[in-house]
Simulated assay, not measured.
Amino acid sequence: MVRVKVVQFLRGSRQGLLLLFALMVSTLALTGCRSVPVTDRTQLMLTSSSYENRLGEEAYAEYKAQYPRSTNAEYNQALARCGKAIVEVAGQKDFNWEFLVLESSTQNAFCLPGGKVAVYSGIMDLMNNEAELAFVVAHEIAHAIARHSGERISWGYLQSLGGLLVAIGFQNDTINGVYGTGTELGVMLPFSRSNESEADQIGLLLMAEAGYNPRAAVQFWSRFSSNSSNGLFSSWLSTHPCDSDRIKAMNDQMGAAEEAYKKARSPKGYGVTFHHK
């Protein structure tokens, strides 16, 4: 009889739904946590690495079908060199690493779960040297070894679950909209920005440990961001931190990165200078 009343309470009241949500979140938090390499931040993880890596394989195949591979030998050789050096210090032995320069004016790069790295030729056209490439690659690799994709999926599960409970409990479109907008602006976007900051921090150390001068990171990002403007409102709606904050954080972390650079087994400095033929 007591059990029946409890179930009726959970199903029939808003307080019960909120309690149910809290109990589910608590259970998930206790059973689905791991520590991020380098930063040791505790993260919620409700997906498996094998599932994430399978998604990465599928997405990588789609990118390779959509974009031609660059024939720029200088770019391909530089990516192979810095990719190998960063993998050696990343400590991720179970990834099937691949590195590819895609021919496109897109100014971007990515590393999908499982170690599938691609850099668009459009962003390499803006780089002065191999060390600048190393920072971009290390930043993307940091996302993969920190399993940020799986973490975002996990938080998305909670956001969707909360939305379902709110919809059932209140049955009000306005409240549903407030929940959706509120969780997106107040939780998901700040969370995405924190992931980018963490990838900057990890990437800076990885490039330094791989033997590349970490000062190249600030030099590249200062130049890359010089034509962009980030107002308060646009930064609030962005998935990435504003450029000035990123550069400041890199400078704040430069001491630790330079110490790692001094201890690198194979110092490379700025590496090869690009000629952009």
Rank of each mutant, 00 (worst) to 15 (best):
A78I: 02
R34C: 03
G56H: 04
W236T: 15
A264T: 12
P113F: 10
L161S: 03
A131S: 12
N53D: 15
E140S: 01
A260L: 07
A256Q: 14
G255D: 14
S149L: 13
Y261C: 13
Y212L: 05
S13P: 10
S13L: 11
R41W: 06
L18N: 14
G180N: 14
N251I: 11
G163W: 11
A217W: 00
Y120E: 08
A85K: 02
S154C: 08
V6H: 11
R246P: 01
L28A: 02
A264D: 06
C242T: 06
Y261S: 13
L204I: 09
K93M: 10
L112E: 01
S192H: 03
F21C: 06
H276C: 07
R193A: 02
L158C: 02
L44E: 03
A146V: 08
G150I: 04
A257P: 07
Q159I: 09
T39D: 11
A134Q: 08
E52S: 04
E259G: 07
G180C: 06
A260E: 11
V89C: 06
R14L: 12
K93T: 15
G162W: 08
K277F: 11
L10F: 15
R246C: 01
S226F: 04
A257V: 13
S266W: 07
A249E: 15
E140Q: 05
E184I: 02
M127P: 05
D200N: 01
G255R: 05
F95T: 08
R81S: 14
K277I: 10
M188Q: 04
S160H: 08
F135Y: 15
E130D: 11
F135M: 14
L55R: 05
Y270W: 08
A142W: 12
A142C: 12
G32T: 06
V7D: 03
W97A: 07
Q219A: 15
R193I: 04
L19N: 00
A131K: 05
E196P: 04
L237H: 09
S35H: 14
C242V: 04
A90V: 07
F220S: 04
P37S: 02
M24C: 09
F9S: 01
Y51Q: 14
A80Q: 12
A257H: 09
G32S: 10
L161V: 10
Y51F: 12
G150C: 00
M127G: 12
T42K: 15
Y60W: 10
Q8P: 10
M127T: 05
L102H: 01
G122D: 01
A61T: 15
T239W: 04
V272C: 08
D125N: 15
A146D: 13
R3G: 12
C111P: 05
Y51G: 08
G12W: 02
G115R: 02
S154G: 06
S226W: 00
L164D: 14
E74N: 03
C111A: 13
V187N: 00
G231I: 03
G12P: 02
V166A: 03
M45N: 05
R41P: 08
E140C: 05
G169T: 11
G156A: 09
A144W: 08
F220N: 04
A146P: 12
E151F: 07
H275V: 13
M254E: 12
G91Y: 06
S192C: 03
F233M: 15
P267T: 07
L126C: 14
L189N: 02
A144G: 10
F274A: 06
V25L: 01
F21P: 05
S197K: 06
M188Y: 04
Y270P: 06
G211S: 00
R152S: 12
A217G: 07
I141V: 14
Y63D: 03
E58F: 07
L18K: 09
